[in-house]
Design a protein around this nucleic acid. Structure first.
Lengths: 253, 253
DNA sequence: TAGTGGTCTAGACCACAAT
DNA sequence: TTGTGGTCTAGACCACTAC
C-alpha cells in the first residue's frame, strides 16, 4: 500500500480510495491481518477521516473487511456459503437442520407476519427463537411464528424450560403434512436484538429470509431469519455443498 | 411529524432519529410524498445534517425512502417481489423469461467467474449483458458468461448487431440439455456500470445472484445478476407469483 | 491507561434537476 | 438560477478492548 496522493478526478475521493484499498487488500495483505488505524490511513492518503471511513464502510459491506471497536480493522476471509434452500422441503426442526432452538413464547406477531398468517388482530402465536452457527461463528437469528391452531395437539402449558417448549413446538410441526413452502430474500438492517445475537452493531446489514410453510390449505408457519450480510453467501438449490469460491488470491505482505 | 427534541439517551442519536422518522413515515406520510429537505429536517430535530443523513441512509437501505439528488427524498412504495427461482430449471433466454438481451462481446471473464468456469487463464467467453424491468423500473442487470466451448455450434463471427449476437448465443444454449443449476445470493455494491443501468449511484447496495448452469458434466454457463436491494425482494420457490405484503398501512397526512 | 473504531458537529463546496 | 442531495473537512468526544 503506497503513499500515493489521489489525483484530482471527477470521481469521488472515497470511491477512488476504495478501489486503491481493494487492490492493496488483494496484493499486500492476507486474511486476518490488521490494517493501520483509521487516523493513520486517512493521513497517509491525505483525506479526512470521515472520507476514509466512507471507503472502509463500502469494503466492509462487500465483506472484504471486518472492523471491531477497540480492536481495529482486519482483512475478512471470503464469505462462507450457507445452505438455505434444498430440493426437499422440510419443516423447521427436522433432524438434520442447522438451527438450534433457544426459547419460545406466546406473543402477538408483528404486523407484517400477522398479515402473512392472516391471523385475526391480537391473536397470539408460538414464537420460537433459534440461532444458527457456522464455523464457530453466529451467522443467523430466526424467529419462527406458529399459530396455536397449527399445533393444536401440543400439550397444555405445563411450562417446562422455554427451550424444551421450543423443541416441543418444532416436534409437533413434524407431524403435519407439509404441502409446500416458498421463500423471499431481501436486505434489512439488524435490530438491537438481532445485532446482539449476531455479534454486530445494531443497523448492520442483514439478509432477511422469509419462509412460508403451507399445510392444511393455509400458511401454517412463518420463519423470518436474518443472516449476517457481511460474512454470508446464501446458497440455494441442488448443490448447497459445492463451494463457489469468490475469493481472490492473497499473499502476505 | 412533531418538533420533538431528542432526549439524552445512551442510544445513538441517529438510531433514535431513525425510529422516530420510521414511525412518522407510517402514520403521517403516504407513498410518493416528499419529505422536507435534509437541512430543514436536521434543524427541526436539532441535529447536524450528517447525523440526520445517517438516519436517512438506514431508512433508504431498508427500502422505506428514496433519495434523488436535485429532487428530494420521497416515501418509497413497498418492495416489489421479483421471481428469481422457480421449480423448473431452464436456461437463460427461455421463451418466458423476464430478461431483455442488450449486447454481447467476447472477453476474458473476471477472475471470480473464471474460477467457477474452471477456464484456463486468458480464455475468452461470450459475455451477454441483459437487463430486467419490472413495473416500468429497471430492477436488475446481468452478465451471462458462456464459454465458446458451450456453444460450439454458434455460427462464426459474421458480426451482426451486438443484440442479435446476444440472442444467437442464448438461442444456442437452449439446445443443450440442462443437467442442473444452483444459485447463491449475497450483498454487494453497484459498480459504475451497474449503477447506470439500475438508475442508482455507484456503490448502491445490490443483491448479487450468481447462478451456475450445468451441462455436459461441467459448468456450461454462469450468470451474475445484480438486483436493486432498495426496491426488490427476491422470491424463490413454488409461489413466485403470490405476494407477501410487507407494507404497513399508510395514510395521507 | 492507551489505542481503537463509533458518533457528532458546523461548516463548505459540488453535481444534478427543475424552473 | 434555485434548491436538492452528495461529498468533504477538521476537529471533538464517546464506548469499547486490551494491556
Amino acid at each position: 500500500m503506497g503513499t500515493t496522493q489521489l489525483e484530482t478526478v471527477p470521481e469521488p475521493k472515497y470511491w477512488h480510495l476504495k478501489t486503491v484499498l481493494s487492490e492493496a487488500l488483494d496484493s499486500e495483505f492476507s486474511v486476518g491481518e490488521i490494517l493501520p488505524n483509521e487516523r493513520d490511513l486517512a493521513a497517509r492518503f491525505g483525506v479526512a477521516r470521515a472520507t476514509l471511513r466512507q471507503a472502509l464502510e463500502q469494503l466492509e459491506l462487500e465483506g472484504r473487511l471486518q472492523r471491531r471497536r477497540g480492536v481495529g480493522t482486519t482483512v475478512a476471509p471470503p464469505r462462507m456459503g450457507v445452505a438455505v434452500g434444498t430440493e426437499e422441503q422440510t419443516w423447521p426442526g427436522a433432524a438434520d437442520d442447522a438451527w438450534q432452538p433457544a426459547d419460545c413464547a406466546m406473543a402477538p406477531p408483528p404486523p407484517a407476519v400477522a398479515h402473512i398468517l392472516e391471523s385475526v388482530h391480537g391473536e397470539q402465536v408460538h414464537t420460537v427463537r433459534r440461532s444458527r452457527v457456522s464455523r464457530g461463528q453466529p451467522v443467523a437469528a430466526e424467529l419462527l411464528y406458529v399459530p396455536a391452531s397449527s399445533v393444536a395437539a401440543l400439550p397444555a402449558i405445563d411450562t417446562p424450560s422455554v427451550t424444551a417448549r421450543a423443541r416441543a413446538v418444532l416436534r409437533e410441526l413434524q407431524h403435519l403434512e407439509l404441502e409446500g413452502q416458498d421463500r423471499a430474500v431481501e436486505l434489512g438492517s439488524a435490530s438491537a436484538e438481532d445485532a446482539k445475537e449476531l455479534d454486530r452493531l445494531p443497523g448492520a446489514p442483514v439478509l432477511v429470509v422469509t419462509t412460508r410453510f403451507f399445510a392444511g390449505g393455509r400458511t401454517a408457519a412463518v420463519s423470518v431469519a436474518t443472516y449476517r450480510a457481511d460474512t454470508c453467501r446464501l446458497t440455494f438449490g441442488a448443490s448447497g455443498g459445492v463451494e463457489i469460491h469468490h475469493g481472490q488470491e492473497r499473499r502476505a505482505s
